[in-house]
Each structure stands twice: as C-alpha cells, then as structure tokens.
Deep mutational scan, measured.
Amino acid sequence: MVQRGSKVRILRPESYWFQDVGTVASVDQSGIKYPVIVRFEKVNYSGINTNNFAEDELVEVEA
C-alpha cells in the first residue's frame, strides 16, 4: 500500500514516465480505477508533471 509522500517507480509501459521515480501526491479511497496521483520532476510533452496510476502499476522504492 503506497501512501502520500512515498517514492514510487512506474511500471506502466505506455506511460511517459515508465521506469521513472515520482512522489505520491495523494491516494483516493473512493474506489476509482486509478486512485494514486504521482508527481514527477520532469514534465511530459504537454507540460504536465502529474498523472494517475493504479496501485499495481507502482512499486515503492522509498517510504
């Protein structure tokens, strides 16, 4: 279970941040499909630095 402030590695192959490390900004408990919002240092092609992920697409590298 990841929690706010954890450092996580992204396992979603189609993601711009695949294999990159980001910080968990928040975790939604309402039961949505992609409840974990992760914030990154670098921006993607659209200038965005956050994205939603499912918990099984993340691996915690640092608490």
Rank of each mutant, 00 (worst) to 15 (best):
Ile37Asp: 02
Arg4Asp: 05
Ser15Trp: 03
Val27Asp: 01
Lys33Ala: 12
Val43Tyr: 15
Val36Pro: 00
Asp20His: 12
Tyr34Ala: 04
Glu60Gly: 07
Ala25Tyr: 11
Val8Leu: 00
Ser26Gly: 14
Arg9Gln: 10
Glu57Ser: 02
Asn51Asp: 15
Pro35Ser: 10
Gly22Ser: 01
Glu60Lys: 10
Val27Tyr: 10
Ser46Ile: 11
Ser30Asp: 05
Val36Ser: 00
Thr50Lys: 06
Ser30Cys: 08
Ser46Lys: 13
Gln3Pro: 04
Glu14Tyr: 11
Glu41Phe: 07
Ile32Arg: 08
Tyr16Ala: 02
Ala25Phe: 11
Glu60Leu: 15
Gly31Arg: 07
Ala63Gly: 12
Tyr45His: 15
Met1Trp: 15
Met1Phe: 13
Glu57Phe: 01
Lys42Glu: 07
Arg4Val: 15
Phe18Cys: 05
Glu14Leu: 09
Val8Arg: 01
Glu14Ala: 10
Trp17Tyr: 02
Glu57Ala: 03
Gln29Met: 13
Ser30Thr: 13
Val24Ile: 04
Val38Phe: 02
Val8His: 03
Gly5Lys: 02
Val43Arg: 13
Ser6Met: 14
Thr23Gln: 07
Val8Asn: 01
Asn51Ile: 07
Leu58Ile: 12
Glu14Val: 05
Asp56Glu: 10
Val27His: 04
Lys7Ser: 06
Tyr34Thr: 03
Ser15Gln: 03
Phe40Val: 00
Glu41Leu: 08
Val2Gln: 04
Ser46Ala: 15
Lys7Ala: 05
Asn52Met: 10
Gln19Tyr: 08
Ser6Tyr: 09
Arg12Val: 07
Gly47Arg: 01
Val38Tyr: 00
Lys7Arg: 13
Lys33Glu: 11
Tyr45Ala: 15
Asn52Gln: 09
Glu55Met: 15
Leu58Gln: 01
Glu62Trp: 11
Tyr45Met: 14
Val8Glu: 02
Val59Cys: 13
Arg9Asp: 05
Val8Phe: 01
Trp17Thr: 00
Glu55Ala: 12
Ser26Thr: 07
Arg4Glu: 13
Asp28Thr: 06
Gln19Val: 06
Lys42Arg: 14
Val38Trp: 01
Glu62Lys: 11
Ala63Glu: 12
Phe18Thr: 00
Gly22Ala: 01
Arg39Asn: 08
Val27Ser: 04
Arg12Trp: 09
Glu57Thr: 02
Ser26Glu: 12
Asp28Lys: 05
Arg12His: 03
Arg12Lys: 08
Tyr16Lys: 02
Ser15Cys: 09
Phe18Pro: 00
Val38Lys: 00
Ile48Phe: 11
Gln19Trp: 11
Glu62Asp: 12
Val38Gln: 00
Gln19Phe: 09
Val8Met: 00
Val36Gly: 00
Glu62Gly: 13
Gly5Val: 03
Ser26Phe: 14
Met1Ser: 14
Gly5Ala: 01
Asp20Arg: 07
Pro13Thr: 10
Phe53Ser: 01
Phe53His: 01
Pro35Gly: 09
Ile32Asp: 09
Tyr45Glu: 15
Tyr34Leu: 07
Phe53Trp: 02
Ala25Trp: 12
Ser30Leu: 05
Val61Gln: 04
Glu55Ile: 14
Glu14Pro: 01
Val36Tyr: 14
Arg9Pro: 04
Gly47Ser: 04
Thr50Val: 12
Gly47Asp: 04
Leu11Pro: 05
Glu57Lys: 02
Asp56Ser: 12
Asn51Glu: 15
Met1Glu: 08
Asn52Tyr: 09
Ala25Ile: 15
Tyr45Asp: 15
Val24Arg: 00
Gly5Met: 00
Ile32Ser: 13
Ser30Glu: 06
Val21Ile: 13
Tyr34Cys: 09
Glu14Phe: 08
Leu11Asn: 06
Val24Gly: 01
Val2Arg: 02
Ser30Asn: 08
Asp56Leu: 06
Asp20Pro: 01
Tyr45Gly: 14
Val2Ser: 03
Val2Asn: 03
Ser15Asn: 02
Val36Ala: 01
Asn44Phe: 05
Glu55Val: 14
Tyr45Cys: 15
Ser46Gly: 09
Arg39Ser: 09
Glu57His: 01
Lys33Arg: 13
Phe40Asn: 00
Pro35His: 08
Val36Glu: 00
Thr50Ala: 06
Val8Thr: 00
Asn44Asp: 14
Val43Ala: 14
Arg4Phe: 05
Gln3Met: 11
Ala63Met: 12
Val21Gln: 02
Val24Gln: 00
Glu62Gln: 12
Asp20Glu: 13
Asn52Lys: 07
Thr50Met: 12
Asp28Tyr: 05
Phe18Tyr: 13
Asn52Gly: 10
Ile10Trp: 04
Gly31His: 10
Val2Met: 10
Asn44Gly: 06
Ile48His: 14
Lys7Ile: 11
Gly22Cys: 07
Leu58Met: 07
Glu55Thr: 13
Glu62Met: 11
Lys33Tyr: 08
Ser26Met: 12
Ile48Met: 14
Ser46Val: 11
Ser46Phe: 14
Phe40Pro: 02
Glu55Asn: 11
Trp17Ser: 01
Asn51Cys: 15
Gly22Thr: 03
Asp56Phe: 12
Val36Phe: 13
Ile37Met: 15
Ala63Trp: 12
Arg12Cys: 08
Lys42Met: 07
Phe53Leu: 00
Ile10Tyr: 04
Gln19Asn: 14
Gln19Gly: 14
Val61Glu: 06
Asp28Trp: 04
Thr50Gly: 03
Phe18Gly: 00
Val59Ser: 09
Trp17Asp: 00
Trp17Met: 01
Val2Phe: 15
Thr50Pro: 01
Asn49Asp: 11
Tyr16Trp: 07
Ile37Gly: 04
Tyr34Ile: 02
Tyr45Phe: 13
Pro13Gln: 12
Gly47Phe: 06
Gly5Gln: 02
Arg4Leu: 12
Leu58Pro: 02
Ile10Glu: 03
Asn44Met: 06
Asp56Thr: 09
Arg9Cys: 13
Gln29Leu: 14
Ser15Lys: 01
Gln29Trp: 11
Asp56Pro: 04
Tyr34Gly: 04
Leu11Trp: 06
Val59Leu: 12
Val36Met: 03
Asn52Leu: 04
Pro13Ala: 12
Arg12Gly: 02
Gln29Glu: 11
Val38Ser: 00
Val38Asp: 01
Ser6Cys: 13
Arg4Tyr: 06
Gln3Leu: 08
Phe40Ile: 02
Gln29Gly: 10
Ala54Leu: 04
Asn52Ala: 15
Asp20Gly: 05
Lys33Cys: 11
Val27Ile: 14
Arg12Ser: 05
Glu62Tyr: 11
Arg12Ile: 05
Ile48Gly: 07
Gln3Ser: 11
Ala63Lys: 11
Lys42Ala: 07
Ala54Val: 02
Glu57Pro: 03
Phe53Ala: 00
Gln29Phe: 11
Glu41Trp: 08
Gly22His: 02
Pro35Val: 11
Asn51Lys: 05
Gly31Thr: 06
Ala54Ser: 10
Val24Lys: 01
Asn49Trp: 07
Glu57Asp: 06
Tyr34Pro: 02
Lys42Asp: 06
Glu41Ile: 08
Val36Ile: 14
Tyr34Gln: 04
Thr23Trp: 08
Ile10Gly: 02
